[in-house]
Structures are given as structure tokens and as C-alpha cells.
Design a protein around this nucleic acid. Structure first.
Lengths: 158, 158
DNA sequence: CGCAATATATGTACTATAGCAAGTATGAAT
DNA sequence: ATTCATACTTGCTATAGTACATATATTGCG
């Protein structure tokens, strides 16, 4: 099934590409202020911990597609940076649970709230009619595109 | 001027955030296949060279916010990787022009065409009516958000 | 020409990421 | 209890990125 002609699709494609650049700008701007506190790979850890909660080292390493031994020292740096904390697992004394510290939470929140703020600023420029149109279009697109898998999103570290 | 109520804006905000995640998924997927050929910082160079053409070392370093001396060795690695090439400047013998090699062009094209393909796949799922809605919404949003500055886009290396 | 300015390259050094192999501590199973 | 598996850490090593200071080559100017 091909409900539109080539020409029609091209316009929508170009529009989508332009919008995707605009959104990337938003995301980049929201990320910029914390880039001297965390590296992009480190920010990925904040994302995972924020969305999935405290986890064992191994689990986390798996989530991030990293070697466990690499991840241990990676975690060292983030602990030193005050972003995450190791703690003993209640289940087993050989397990180590990694959780966000308050600082880590704050850094993550800073980025997400900046993102919301930026988007709100854009939306505030719109008339009620345009806002409706944006909302409708984005919802339809998001539904068709589907949520990216966590792994996919993490490629970029966002 | 505040053309909408809080509730209305929230729905549009959430929709935008969800769509932004969907688009990030698209971008990440398109980038994944080349991530074993280039690093993200290196991909930024491909982006700049693709969009602004061959440039002097110093210009390029400036574009990327890098120290000139750092960039010289950074360029070495990309030359070794076959992605860019140094050449003499016609203007001055002390200037070095950096340009994409065919491989570099191909890597960049691979990513952008994958992105187009992914988006096209999503749009193909839509009815003509929905496609119109998506196109309208994205155009309005992009116009309001504006093009991100090159520097902003490069934060993420995309 | 001689000297200052410019463009790039190199010496040196440090941090982050990352993998393999080996070590240690703990838990589980026979 | 001994042995095997699990979970994590550490030793070692290598590469990428980045910066500062210094060298080298080239250009432009007085």
C-alpha cells in the first residue's frame, strides 16, 4: 500500500529532516551546559540509571554494551566525579549496586528540564491553531516511528 | 502573549518530547553502521566538510572548536583512516587544505541516506491525511524553532 | 634583506574509553 | 568441604582526544 505520490512524500521527507535538525539543536543546547561535568558516555549512564533505577554493575555494563572490567573503572571515574555511588546489594555481598547520587540526579534533571524549557519556548511562539497542528503532526509521527529501543537511543548517549 | 492554556501546552510539549525521542532513534540507527569506521568526533569533521566544502586546517579546527595543534594530529588519524586528505593550497604553500576522500564522502552519504530511508519508511506507513498532518506540524515547528547554529549541531557530532 | 606574523607540525603530557587476562571474594552445588 | 560458577576488581596495554609550549616553514612588510 502506497497512499501517496512521490512528490507528496518528498515534501514530507524534507520537512521531517528539517524538523529533526531543529530538534537536534534543542537537544544539543540542552546538553551543552553539562558537558564540562560529564562526558557523553557518562551521561548515558545517568540516562540509564534515571530511567531504569539502580542496578548491579554487570547489568549496567550490559545495558551500555561495555566490557565488565572496562565498566568497573569507568564507574570509578564517575564515583570520583560524584555522579554515581556504589553500594552493597542486600541480596549478595559480591554484588555491587550502582545508583545516582544527588549530583547525578541533578545533572540529569538539568538536561531534561532544559530540553523541556527549550521546547516550551518554541511552542510559546505558536498560535493556538499552529500548536494544534504541531501536536497532531508529532503525535502521528511518533506513533508511526515507535519508541526507539533503549540501545538505539544510547548510541548517541542521549 | 500566551495564546494557550497550560493544559493545552503540556500535551504539545509531551508530544514534542516523544517525537524528539523517535527522531533520535532514527538518527542513532542511521549512525550506528558507521560507528566502527569513524568515531563521533571524526564524523563531525565529515559533516563540516560535506556542508562547507574543503577548508584550511585552521578554519576547520575553528569550526570544530578545537585547538589547532590538537587538530593536526586528529587529522593525521583521519588521513590514516582514509577519510580525509591533505593537499597543498593554491594560495599559499604554508596552508594545508583538508578535503573528504571518496571514502569519507561515502561514509557521510551512507549515514544521510540511511536517515532518509528510515524516515521514508515511517512516512510510508501513513495515510495521505496523516502525512499531510505530519508535514504541516513539522514545518510549523521547524520554522518556529529555527535552524540550529552549526556549532550547536556539532555538540552531538551529527 | 631581515623581521614579524601566520599556518602547520611536533614534543610532551594528561584524561577517557576500552579490552584481555588474571586475581579476589562470595555464593551455590555436589 | 571441596569445587565450580558468579560478580567484581586490578594489572596491563592500547587508542582517541585534547592542550600547551615549541619548532618549522612560509608569507608579508618595512
Amino acid at each position: 500500500m502506497k497512499p501517496w505520490t512521490g512528490q507528496h512524500s518528498d515534501a514530507a521527507l524534507e520537512g521531517t529532516l528539517i524538523a529533526s535538525r531543529a530538534l537536534l539543536g534543542v537537544i544539543a543546547r540542552s546538553l551543552a551546559p553539562v558537558m564540562d561535568t560529564v562526558t557523553l558516555p557518562q551521561f548515558r549512564v545517568l540516562v540509564v540509571l534515571s530511567n531504569f533505577g539502580p542496578q548491579r554493575m554487570g547489568e549496567l555494563a550490559l545495558h551500555l554494551g561495555a566490557n565488565q572490567s572496562s565498566f568497573s573503572r569507568f564507574a570509578d571515574r564517575m564515583v570520583t566525579g560524584g555522579l554515581i555511588a556504589r553500594s552493597a546489594s542486600p541480596d549478595s555481598r559480591r554484588e555491587v549496586i550502582i545508583a545516582l547520587t544527588e549530583v547525578g540526579e541533578r545533572v540529569y534533571a538539568e538536561v531534561t528540564s532544559a530540553r523541556r524549557r527549550e521546547i516550551t519556548e518554541v511552542l510559546e511562539k505558536l498560535s493556538a491553531t499552529d500548536l494544534d497542528a504541531v501536536q497532531a503532526g508529532f503525535e502521528i509521527f511518533a506513533r508511526a516511528a515507535g519508541e526507539p529501543s533503549p540501545d538505539e537511543t544510547l548510541i548517541l548517549g542521549i
